[in-house]
Amino acid sequence: MVEETYIEKVCIVRANSIVVDTVPRFSSDDSLFAEFSKQAFRQINPEYPKFFKMDSLSKLAVLAAEYLLEGQPIDDLALVLANRSGSLDTDVRHQESIQNEQEYYPSPATFVYTLANICAGEISIRHGLQTENAFFIAEDYPINTARSYTEYLLKSGKAKRVLCGWVEFFEEKYDAVLYIVSPKGTNKHSAENIKKLFE
């Protein structure tokens, strides 16, 4: 049975830069997320055309996960994600496509992203994670809930490791803080240490 759990690795994507643990991995002067994410993703994975079909929230989640999971074992890796806006950025786009009767062309490729958990599904598909998945929505990162839920998955044996964190995107404002929790490491998986990731 798992006793101690640790924050093993962290990836932060914000303000056009990507930092893994404390190492800067990518940054760009491009202010648009679409361009920034394209360059950043190509640098680490030039061969995944599916990436360019995703909405912004999924791009953000998959991009952060790509850097975080580089060189990592993915066996029995569960996902516990959260954000504030859900899929609202894409919801607004879908609403625009159905707002007027004369210009009524709802797009299946847009609509499918009007669910917050799709970005978790995209990470699962990219890395072949047939594992526990949960998506929460809260005003701020629900530290205690994410922590308890993750501990549950590890201690009950329902996962060996957990990819957790925050993936928020709305109207070009974005922030991703993803981290791996496992029975291995030195940085304890405590509420205080999770809080520090968001400072």
Binding site: Y105, P106, S107, P108, A109, V112
Partner: peptide, 17 residues
């Protein structure tokens, strides 16, 4: 081109629009 089922539905929208 490696299109999938969502692309097929999207092409139906394109034909209409």
């Amino acid at each position: 081109l490696g299109l999938d089922s969502i692309d097929a539905l999207e092409l139906i929208v394109l034909m209409d629009k």
